[in-house]
């Protein structure tokens, strides 16, 4: 990759990162940004289903609630679900991948078969099934997205471990009598993490999409709490007359997921010299 291209990557990464930071800031400071409460209804006919105006930046919904306020508070849910779910995936994926790659043999064969079994299921349907058993709530949504999303990470980490564990410094550590635990976490893992960063960032975008889909289907966050997905659902009932109810949450999801993807791809090019050329197709 020549220098010019690398600069472009940096610029993309910067844009993606800025958008994400702005989204987080908006979610965190929602209380200061809008004076409206997200769940405060106003049933007066003149307050319901109002198009965007100076008073209500993004209009109001069928119960007279301010859509902008609901989007801001909904961002807390949508963004944190993505974040927490990916942390769960990373923890599981890294640990199983590390064990698999480091020990090899039957352990490796067993863990990789488990990965393949989990990967066989279409993720969304597996999640729907789990939620049907566990009952929908924000915690279960985070956990369920997390425990179904670790397989790719485990494979990546395993592959890194397979190559890194043969390096001289690992052999040296082993010769000095370091424990397996120390070798895995102090010596190998730090050198195997760059693909994890990339994959995690891309994973956040995916998790936000899944959360939106679940909330849209009514299996995510429960009313009256808002998330971008369930604002979309309630807007669906007024799709021919109140365009603002579906457009803005849809845009928010699009922009956020796109930002994560841009950031992830840019990170990949910057961090991982062996992936040179990928992500430019």
């Amino acid at each position: 990759m020549n220098k010019k291209k690398k600069d472009w990557r940096k610029r993309y990464a910067f844009v993606g990162l800025s958008v994400i930071i702005a989204m987080f800031a908006a979610a965190i400071f929602a209380d200061f940004i809008t004076a409206y409460s997200p769940n405060e209804t106003n049933l007066a006919p003149e307050a319901k289903l109002q198009p965007p105006s100076r008073e209500h930046l993004l209009g109001t919904d069928d119960l007279g609630r301010d859509v902008f306020a609901r989007m801001l508070y909904g961002a807390r849910i949508s963004l944190s679900v993505g974040f927490v779910a990916v942390i769960i995936s990373v923890v599981i994926g890294v640990i199983l991948g590390a064990i698999s790659g480091y020990y090899g043999g039957w352990v490796d064969i067993f863990i990789m078969r488990v990965v393949e079994i989990v990967m066989c299921f279409p993720t969304l349907f597996l999640i729907l099934m789990l939620l049907a058993f566990l009952g929908p709530s924000i915690i279960t949504v985070m956990v369920v997205i997390g425990v179904t999303g670790w397989t790719g990470l485990a494979r990546l980490v395993r592959a890194e471990f397979l190559s890194v564990k043969e390096r001289d410094y690992v052999q040296a550590a082993r010769a000095l009598g370091a424990s397996d635990f120390r070798i895995i976490f102090r010596h190998i893992l730090p050198n195997a993490l760059s693909p994890v960063y990339v994959s995690a960032v891309l994973g956040v975008g995916g998790a936000i999409l899944i959360e939106s889909a679940l909330s849209f289907l009514g299996l995510g966050v429960q009313i009256p709490m808002s998330s971008w997905g369930n604002i979309l659902t309630s807007g669906m009932h007024y799709i021919e007359s109140a365009w603002w109810l579906m457009l803005f949450p849809g845009l928010a999801i699009l922009i956020t997921v796109l930002s994560y993807n841009i950031l992830g791809e840019a990170l990949r090019d910057l961090l991982d010299p062996r992936l040179k050329g990928y992500g430019q197709k």
């Binding site: 769940n39 405060e40 119960l63 009952g135 429960q222 009313i223 009256p224």
Partner: peptide, 21 residues
Amino acid sequence: DVATIIQQNWREIGVEVEIQA
């Protein structure tokens, strides 16, 4: 929608409700 309004109504008298659909 009815559940949402009732939740708010009850909140005003000090009763906390969690809605599940």
